[in-house]
């Protein structure tokens, strides 16, 4: 249970992908104008992160390391994730057109998203620090990826909500639009930095 809480807190708050690790900045700034599209993007990223980890972690530990080409991880992971997202897009389009219309349109945007690649990299590398002494396995890896995705979605929703709200106010001409978004982003990141003092 301790490990579970540690992983969830680390993934969502203390090591949030956007605000602390600065992964996935392009959807964070690009798709956060409307809450509806931010939610769609967040859900798509969450699903792809969990699925990608589910595939890349066993491939790495069971195939790549024993065969001695573990050093090819980054290039191989991009390979696998891109293929996975392509297949996922086709499957969703066939099985659920409504889900495809809300979420699937964001899938091509995240084929090589750094947040997705980042989580695949983290679970084979740095993740031991969040494990609280437990040994690493596929379950923890997927759990971490899932909650990292939820943390991503959380920040996306906060950002889009603030940007929607900011649209209702007059901003100085020089700051209107993207500069305001950058300032907003920096404030969100600073707010999340507070969580890094949580000691588990």
């Amino acid at each position: 249970m301790g490990t579970f809480i540690a992983i969830v807190l680390a993934a969502v708050l203390t090591n949030n992908f956007i605000t602390v690790k600065t992964y996935g900045i392009c959807p964070f700034l690009g798709v956060s104008k409307k809450t509806s599209s931010a939610v769609g993007m967040g859900v798509a990223v969450t699903i792809v992160m969990a699925l990608a980890t589910l595939v890349t972690y066993p491939v790495y530990t069971l195939v790549m390391v024993p065969l001695g080409f573990g050093f090819l991880e980054i290039i191989f992971f991009i390979f696998i994730i891109a293929a996975l997202v392509q297949m996922l897009e086709k499957i969703i389009q066939k099985l659920s057109p409504s889900l495809y219309n809300t979420m699937g349109i964001y899938l091509p945007l995240i084929t090589t998203n750094c947040a997705v690649l980042g989580v695949a990299e983290l679970v084979i590398g740095d993740m031991s620090q969040f494990l609280n002494g437990a040994s690493m396995n596929l379950g923890w890896a997927v759990l971490y990826a899932l909650f990292a995705g939820l943390g991503f979605t959380l920040v996306m929703i906060i950002m889009s909500g603030m940007r929607e709200k900011l649209n209702c106010y007059k901003t100085p001409k020089a700051l209107a639009g993207f500069p305001t978004a950058m300032v907003t982003a920096s404030f969100i990141c600073m707010a999340f930095m507070v969580f890094t003092y949580i000691q588990i």
């Binding site: 293929a83 297949m87 499957i91 066939k94």
Partner: peptide, 12 residues
Amino acid sequence: ILILVVGKVFKV
């Protein structure tokens, strides 16, 4: 090949 198969099976 995998993508091709999935593309064929889930053709819209």
